[in-house]
Structure formats: C-alpha cells, structure tokens
Design a protein around this nucleic acid. Sequence first.
DNA 1: GAAATGGTTTGATGCAGATCAAGTCAACGC
DNA 2: GCGTTGACTTGATCTGCATCAAACCATTTC
Lengths: 256, 256
Amino acid sequence: MRAADIDRVKSLPLFADVGPDTFRVATAGAHLQRFPTGTMLLLEGDPVDFLYVLLDGQVELHGTWNDRETVLAILRPVSTFILAAVVLDATALMSARTLDRCEILMIPGDAIRTAMRLDSRFAMAVSRDLAGGYRGLVRNVKNTKLRNSTERLANYLLALRAADNSGSVVRLHHEKRVLASLLGMTPESLSRSFSALQKCGVTVQGAVVTLANLPALEQLAKPDPLIDNHAPRNGDIVADADAEVWSSEWNRSESQ
Amino acid sequence: MRAADIDRVKSLPLFADVGPDTFRVATAGAHLQRFPTGTMLLLEGDPVDFLYVLLDGQVELHGTWNDRETVLAILRPVSTFILAAVVLDATALMSARTLDRCEILMIPGDAIRTAMRLDSRFAMAVSRDLAGGYRGLVRNVKNTKLRNSTERLANYLLALRAADNSGSVVRLHHEKRVLASLLGMTPESLSRSFSALQKCGVTVQGAVVTLANLPALEQLAKPDPLIDNHAPRNGDIVADADAEVWSSEWNRSESQ
DNA sequence: GAAATGGTTTGATGCAGATCAAGTCAACGC
DNA sequence: GCGTTGACTTGATCTGCATCAAACCATTTC
C-alpha cells in the first residue's frame, strides 16, 4: 500500500480520531486489492469477513428478491462499506459489485472488532459512522415514501450540484439505468421524468445535465434538510455534529 | 423508578453487557415520565437531548414533507429510540408521537456519550445497536422497493405470527390506517390487500386476523431471511451475532 | 465500413394503487 | 333511544408508473 493510500484511509472519519497504535491494530492484516469492472465482491447472504474501503472506482450495492433487483447505493471513493455487518459479524444483506476497475482495501473484521474493544475512541468513531449511515437510510426511506419519481429526480440533481459544487452544469456519475434503479424507477420512467423537468429548465445530453432555471427546479423539488443532506439548514451555523454528511448515495454511504 | 423498571432497562441489549459503574454513569440524570395518548415527544428538526427508552405503551415515528406524512416505525416496549441522533448530538429526522399512554425513561444524551468514552464495551454495545438498526432499515428499503403492497402485507402478517409465536390467529397491534402508512399504502389499499389475501386463507375481523392456509400465504409472501428477520435461515443454527433481531417495526427498531 | 451490441428514448397500452365518494358499523355521549 | 363520531370498507374513477415494443444512436468488433 502506498503512503498516499494510507493517508487517504487515515483521513476517513472512521480513522481520523484514532491514535497511531489503534490504527495499526485496526489495519493489521489489511491488504489492498484491484478488481476489474463487474466483479461481484460480495453476495447477499455471504458471511462478511472484511471491512471494505473503496479507494478508487465505483461500487454498487444492490439487493434481490424473487427475480427482482434494486440498486440500494452507489459508492465513490473514499468510503467504507458493510461496517454494520462487520460489527455484528453477520452475513451481508446487500450484494456488492464493481462498476469500474476498483482499488479496494480489505481490513479483516476481527481487527476492527479488536480495535474497538481496545480503544473507546475508535468504538465511538464506529458508532458515529453507523449513526450517520443510519440517518442516511432514514432520509432515503422518507425520500421514497414521500416523493414521486420526478420529485426524487429533481432532488437528486440538486444534491449532485451541491456535492460537486458545480454551477448550472452537472455530470451524472453513472449509467442512467443504474440511476433509475437507485431512484426506484425504470429506465423509461427516468427518461420521462427528465423530459418532465424540461419545464424547469433541465436539459440532458448524455451524462451532462444543464440546470438552466434553478429557482423553478427548487420550487418543484422542495429540498428539505430533513431529507436531503445538502439542503441548507434554515438558520445559522452548521453544527459540527452533522458531520454525518451524507445521503444514501455516492461518497460515505456507510453500508450495512 | 421502580426496581423492576431498572431491571427492564438493564436487560436491553444496549445495557446487557456493561458493568454496574458504567450503567450508573449512563443513566445519571435519567428520569421516568408518563405521557398521555397523542403526545408529540419530538418534532423532526428538533435538537435531541435525550435517549428515549420506551417501557410501556406504543410510540409512532413518522416523517413529513410537503403536507404528506408517512409512518416510519412503530415501537413497542422495551425499546430505545433516537440513539443515532444522540450519538451525533444532532437534530431529529423523525417525529415521535405516543399512540397510547406511555411510560418512558429519558436519559440525557451527554450521559450516554460520556459512558461511551469511558467504557469501550458500552461503546461497542451502542455500535451493535446502531448496526442492528441500520440493517433493519436496509431490510425495510428492500421490502418496499422489491415487493408490491399485497406482498408486503402478507410478509407483515407472517412476521407478526413469528414475533408473537401465535398459531394461526394473530392480533394486529395498531390501527389499520397506521399499519397502512407503515406498509407504504393508503387505508383503502390495505383493505383491498386484505381481501386479495382471502385466496390464501386470510380472514379479518377487526384486529383479529386468521391465517387458515399458511403454505398458500407463504407461497405468495416468499419470506426471505435477507429481508424478513423472522424468516428461517436456510441451514442450521442461528448465529449469535444475528442477535440484531429486529425488523423495522415494533420492538427494538433502533431509531435514528 | 458493415454489422453487432448495449444503452437510451419514444410511443402505445395496461395495471397497481391513489383518490374521491358513499355506505357500514361500532363506540360513545346526552 | 338517537345522533354523533371515527375507523373501516366498498365502489367508481383516475393517474403515475410499469410494461411491451420499436426506433435511435454511439461504440465496438471484425
């Protein structure tokens, strides 16, 4: 593992707060691995032996039932996943598949649990990570139960814009069919939702989306800090505690 | 607080593993309170100052957006809620409302965070609790995204049966309109889903539901251990680790 | 360059579930 | 008793989204 990679791992919220000794215990036996596109890293139902740290590429988490499949989250570097299963030493509830060539650090679950036992600061960091992931999922559930598909898309676009702090042009980070499943709709419906947003100044060219009329888009989307983590708090300063920082997608969607 | 109540709190997974000293720190300044039916304990957006432990009665957690409202979970004793917000010292993402007269222990968030810092075993217990809650929500998301409303109802009934290990007669624990919202449908649709299940031997009389043809119901419901926490693991012994134990509802739906 | 491939869009149609509106039933109060 | 209230059901209708099918378009492959 390169020194630069070690720094990137250390800079994760999960490890930011721990001393070098705990860091050594936690990452004992960790190994870096590269995977080609489309690799199944983990199948739902499998026992989970490692905490995964995505350093490069994209990973999709999905679930299946009765021949149906749905995308639950898409991860981008640097993020950890299946922490919850590691903490409980349980089997995976979601499958993980690489969407690109990926570079992933795999940390034995035992090492994580040992480090937690030895260092309450690390255990607290794990708790904070899990709490943030929990709240991300609560937001996700509210999003799907309270909004229709066009509203979800509109808010997704605003969240993208906020995350990449881009101007009026945002780039989609993944294929539209993947995005559709993530947003809980079919590719056809996504396509039609995009056209429905034309009246709010939204135009699409491949992966490039132009938001020409932000006020109109926001009026339709009605972003809400209690659902969309990017949305502005009504008042004042952002509390340090809300370093929870992430919605159900991309970066830091702590998983399982 | 009565001695019996202390024992009930101690028997929570969150506290089961900790020594008497940590328990004393954690519950310092805790006070027991009674609330009438329909009391708003917490409004989404409010800062969360206490960890709540429901000792008696039922509490509904719900979320709102744009004049729409949805029930996210229903808690039954003994369970804790809003642990995630307490850990992060953040504002609530869900509102909490009593459905009955309730008896609730309120533990200052500071005390919880202090106890975590002092005792890594307690911090690990918090992590396990949050991890279990996280996985409950993952199951919930899979349930809503992968199943239609009749399938969700069928699985709900099977879960009820398993939780109360009742025979072929189960009792609904709450009003049908609340159940409908929890399952992500309207009361009218719930009513029609119940009639749709008649062909699987399901009959309803008020809160009493009779499951006269379990095999048929299961064939429609297709319960899955990766969604429904009650569902039988395919093989052998249930791992201790899966003491995660709960789906998104009733008991132990660790919240926020 | 032609053909094949795979993602995306567009159109026509169908259906699950929401909405709107009565109607039923039980509990409760005066 | 009788009327009120509120939960639940039933029926008629509407609509958002899925499904099915074809067309489109960019890449890749030979």
